[in-house]
């Protein structure tokens, strides 16, 4: 049996040496991604607490998943996650496109500004979160200081008020990740073919018309990439929340990932945490599939 197995592998190698060239990568993916995925699915079916001295793993079937749908924090955090994703992705897409259009001409100034706009992206989100936390501090922070100078009532500070905590956290994300979208859109703009524009110019279209009827449709694949990338990233937000509000005040900025972290690394309830993580995974996967389907169908 081993002989036939090796024979098939050898045959495969002869026919297709790429397989072997890919083999280290495949092995790597199995170890780093596939195995943990199956492991997390397995423990999500168990009642498994790390802090249990006996380390017993009791099989409970889908109980962890049922529990998730009854957990009030899950519903709140799900809602918060959706608000966060919708808000950040929309603003970032619009701002990113605007900035890309603004800085696409190859002038000295544009090049200079472009390189500076990349700095936020290069900073670790945790550091960014901590810096913004001190900027936002109601009593010693810079931002409330100037808001007070303008005669505005900042109350408990942007991160402390129920109504402003979420927008304040979203602003951090926008500040950090808009440059990434700018880069993606810039690359998209640079690779657009020139001929349609020339034809449109000959036909007497205005710049606005060229933008609406040429640039936007031609940029659709770029939009797809940017949109998907940021949606998936935004769904997984953790560092910024962890460093600024810890999901507070109350639970208004508790996103799903933060709740998973609490369950997994404060309660060490690994079974339930894995179940929650798998729910998040399914949601992100479904969204990805939907986006890809919608965008490819439109292109036809």
């Amino acid at each position: 049996m081993i002989q036939t197995f090796t024979q098939t592998i050898i045959k495969k190698f002869k026919a297709d040496p790429f397989f072997w060239l890919l083999f280290p990568l495949l092995l790597y993916i199995v170890v780093i991604a596939i195995y943990p995925l199956f492991f997390s699915f397995r423990i999500s079916l168990f009642d498994y607490r790390l802090t249990d001295p006996n380390q017993t793993q009791t099989f409970v079937g889908l109980e962890n998943y049922i529990r998730a749908f009854k957990d009030p924090t899950v519903l709140i955090s799900l809602e918060n996650t959706l608000i966060y994703v919708a808000g950040t992705v929309t603003v970032e897409l619009l701002l990113g496109l605007g900035l890309a259009l603004l800085f696409s001409p190859e002038t000295k100034l544009a090049q200079f500004v472009r390189s500076f706009l990349l700095i936020p992206m290069a900073l670790p989100p945790l550091v960014v979160g901590l810096i913004w936390k001190s900027l936002y501090n109601a009593d010693f922070g810079v931002i409330p200081y100037y808001l007070k100078q303008l005669g505005l009532d900042v109350g408990r500070g942007p991160l402390g008020e129920l109504s402003t905590a979420m927008p304040a956290v979203m602003l951090i994300d926008v500040w950090q990740w808009t440059p990434l979208l700018m880069i993606i859109f810039l690359a998209g703009l640079k690779s657009l073919p020139q001929e349609p524009y020339e034809a449109a110019y000959v036909d007497g279209s205005s710049r606005w018309q060229s933008f609406i009827y040429l640039t936007l449709p031609l940029m659709k694949p770029t939009f797809l990439i940017a949109f998907l990338l940021r949606t998936v990233q935004s769904f997984k937000v953790f560092d910024t929340i962890y460093a600024t509000t810890a999901g507070g005040p109350g639970q208004v900025t508790t996103v799903l990932n933060y709740h998973i972290y609490t369950v997994g690394l404060t309660f060490f309830d690994m079974g339930y945490a894995s179940a929650l993580a798998n729910i998040l995974l399914v949601m992100v996967t479904v969204l990805s599939i939907v986006y890809i389907l919608v965008m490819t169908r439109r292109q036809l």
């Binding site: 008020e161 129920l162 999901g247 507070g248 005040p249 109350g250 639970q251």
Partner: peptide, 18 residues
């Protein structure tokens, strides 16, 4: 740690009026 986390969330929610 479980008591602390629960109080940490809900006492804060009380203080901000939630």
């Amino acid at each position: 740690s479980i008591i602390q986390d629960a109080l940490g969330t809900y006492v804060n929610a009380f203080l901000v009026g939630q």
